[in-house]
Design a protein around this nucleic acid. Structure first.
Lengths: 343, 343
DNA sequence: GCCGTTCATGTAACCGGTTACAAACTTCCG
DNA sequence: CGGAAGTTTGTAACCGGTTACATGAACGGC
């Protein structure tokens, strides 16, 4: 007979703090103190309580605890869509930071419209101590009304006054990339933009245009949706253009992947026939063939910083600070700059 | 003066069910019934309560509710690591299914060892009604002791008796892929396996060997870790072999991506010089250059099914059922079978 | 021997919901 | 008109923790 299952049989279905107290011969207050390491307790008492708790497999009821402490040690994360490597990296960043501090993550993705968004935000209130919201497609002004006012909220990639926001230097990064392409001698630089009402997409496009203007070049743009699919379609169109662009700047890496597939199919070699660059530096970017030149966004940091500000904000409530994360140019082979070893 | 903030100012910090009851001139029981749509209530009473609740911006306290109902409508998801497209697809599958049923997701990733795993599982008890665990690297036998016994648990890609499990037909899929390569005339088919104690990796390798044995061929194996990086390294080694393998079967798509990068760097063209195939069919597989022939795993379904079984199991507790998901061969260009348009 | 401290622990109120049971009010029927 | 049956609502106990306050013991100084 396996020991564990035999033992589990005579444990009452729900072990409460009172069971532990009774069996250890102490009061519930003492057990609570032991578990929260509060107040002075005799060493021997601690040991006795812990022993009993272990034997009974006592686990404090999180709901009861949050009822009296008004804290759940859980933060909510609301993302637009869980597709792809970008979001999984953001989540990873938050998760890592949360775990270090003993927080949990309540995740919800795929919120197309405002109603859905509101429903989710409503539903998770009471379950969480704070909220990280990423909703680049929604108008920030409209967004603010939906957000809970009694818990701290941090926004990713959207600026709303009254809330701390974390943004990326999209325009700066895009401009730097254009400069790089110009320096390489390109004069027909095309751009695959992101979806129209997406804040990141808009800023990147602005940076692209600013960079071109600086060099006295004319923009060539096609609108995408940040998906591989849309990058594929856009590249097909560029391939048909005459004169063809000599360089294509994709608004994000996912679309660059799609574009790469399209160019290969069309018999255009990257970077010999056409240079291709992206934005984000998602993990696989360096493993593409050829490795993708792109603008590096500290994606995981984005999540980590969001979490940290949330926790900090919860403590000394008041000062809301906005953070703008810098981007860096990562030159690999897809822009034709100079052949180098992988990475 | 903005209306909302003006109004929110005179709302007490925490609106409870008693506040609503008092203001609506009913008892707390009635308010509770209205919110849970239980028992018969007069139409007019419902309206009055809802009006007051709306005006007060009342949100039920989730902790208090879970204290008396013993249910949180939240399920926990414990994954080995949040890296990459595979896991983000799994999460997406669970999230979608959960949202449809009004459940929430408590997510935790990156659990290297058993201690960490136990800590997390302990911490989330009381917060969740059920648990989805994916831990292919841990020995299933050792795992079972750590799992909570008072809530339903569903395992992904690991078989532990006493728990419902969802597995993939890894061996069958791998064997089918080998047969396909054999049919194309390949005789030196190499394999990049996954990490040694990973259940999926083992089964895929078994399928690979079985397929080779069937054709009377000898295995050529290098061990990887399911990362792009390790696929890259493995492919470098294969490229140095003489005679070179004519086909490389990667234990997952991520490693195939790495391998593709390595082959390109080594001047080996895929599929002309060497065929390359993967396993999983992650979303970007079809956008690689060349598009990757792979074994399709219904990844999002994996998550969805896990959730469904969890909920079902919670209801009519008792019959535990195991599900094995079928895989399908997806032939694209990387195996050299027949050129076709993208997708 | 008395008192002020400090340390360790116990008692009981409270957090905000749910729900069994009771109660009040209708309606209907003989 | 009395009472059975049905409908709607209220009262209060309970879920399982935390913690303010009270208590009691031990100790040191006078």
């Amino acid at each position: 007979m396996p020991r564990t299952s035999a033992r589990s049989a005579d444990i009452p279905p729900n072990v409460t703090i009172r069971d532990v107290a009774a069996r250890a011969g102490v009061s519930v207050a003492t057990v609570s103190r032991v578990f929260n390491q509060k107040g002075p307790i005799r060493e021997e008492t601690v040991r006795r309580v812990m022993d009993v708790a272990g034997a009974l497999q006592y686990i404090p009821h999180a709901g009861a605890r949050s009822l009296s402490t008004r804290s759940t040690r859980t933060i909510g994360v609301v993302l637009p869509d869980l597709h792809g490597e970008f979001f999984s990296e953001v989540i990873r960043g938050i998760d890592l930071a949360a775990r270090e501090t003993g927080y949990h993550l309540l995740l919800s993705g795929s919120h197309a419209d405002r109603d859905e968004m509101r429903a989710v935000v409503q539903a998770v209130r009471g379950l969480i101590d704070g909220l990280v919201v990423m909703s680049p497609d929604l108008d920030p002004g409209a967004l603010v009304g939906e957000l809970p006012r009694n818990i701290p909220v941090v926004l990713l990639n959207a600026k709303v006054k009254g809330h701390p926001c974390i943004t990326i230097d999209n325009a700066g990064g895009a401009k730097a990339m254009v400069r790089h392409l110009v320096a390489l001698g390109h004069e027909r630089i095309a751009f695959i933009s992101g979806p129209p009402h997406n804040a990141d997409a808009e800023q990147r496009r602005r940076g692209y245009r600013a960079g071109l203007a600086e060099a006295g070049l004319a923009p060539i743009e096609i609108e995408g949706t940040f998906t591989e699919e849309s990058g594929y379609e856009a590249a097909k169109q560029f391939a048909r253009l005459s004169p063809q662009p000599t360089a294509v700047f994709s608004g994000n890496d996912s679309m660059a992947i799609g574009a790469l597939a399209a160019f290969n199919e069309a018999g255009l070699r990257v970077p010999e026939s056409v240079a291709l660059v992206g934005f984000d530096d998602i993990p696989i970017a360096r493993f593409l063939a050829p490795p993708l030149t792109t603008v590096k966004v500290p994606i995981a940091d984005l999540g980590r910083r969001a979490f940290e500000i949330l926790i900090h904000d919860a403590k000394d409530n008041g000062q809301q600070r906005n953070v703008k994360l810098e981007t860096t140019l990562v030159v690999r082979r897809s822009c034709g700059a100079r052949p180098r070893r992988l990475r």
